[in-house]
Amino acid sequence: MTTTHTRAPSAETKAPRRSALLQRDWSLLAQRLGALGIILALWQAAVLTGLLPSITPTVPEVTLGLWTAVTSTSFWTALGQTLSAATAGWIISCVLGVFLGLLIGPLRWLDRSTSVTVEFGRAFPTIALMPVILLLLGATTSMQITMVVLSALWPVLVQSILGARRLDPGIADTVRIYRIPRLLWFRRVLLPSALPFVTTGVRIAASISILAAVGIEVLTQVPGIGRMITLAQEAQRWDLAFAYLFFAGLFGWTVTALLARAESSLLAWNRQASG
């Protein structure tokens, strides 16, 4: 891997640039911190002047709330519960969506037959089914996972179908000429070819999984970080409620960042080949 002249800007060329940026740009960091200070000051001012509802906690209160949250076991338990439900639903969605999508995408008759159904499923706001699913399954973790799957399945499915559809005709001919067996074709040709699209679906599904898992907790008795927020709000512990919200955001941000990183290393070939 010594030829670099044909490469588009990639992770490798980006890394040194980023560290250069860090060295050069202490001022950026300072400005970012400054901006944070301004945001917090504005918030504090808004609370004190009554621009925000009077129950809104002040900055010191939320800071204290953050500390209370991190040091309490119930917070970590709740985070774990949300995380495991979201992850379980996400994994099921991914496996199911990729499998079905790669099955449907290459077969034109199946693709055409399922298009309306898939479109409907994707556009359907699944959360509306929650009361019905709640009646059927009760406020349980399996209900929560079901809801997560019903919400997160669609982006993976749609993206996998798109990915499988675009298999290059040249490659399709090659695979036929050399009589590649079905299973090997699936694993070594169709899957990698569809991967750039699949990963996008997987990434969207991850955000939706968290959104759905937290939403279910907010609306029902299912335990987790969403439930903690509702409970804190009901108990008028606004400092804690904001702290939990902050961690929910941090959690979502971490997941997105990790997935984006995994994706760019998994798809190095794609960036090179098309760039």
Partner: peptide, 25 residues
């Protein structure tokens, strides 16, 4: 085929591309 760039699989190394039909056998 004419379109060599489209008959080789970009996610496989050259060796894997050449060996792939044999893997199928």
């Amino acid at each position: 085929f004419q379109d060599y760039s489209r008959s080789l699989m970009p996610w496989m190394t050259t060796r894997e591309n050449v060996a792939f039909p044999l893997q199928g056998q």
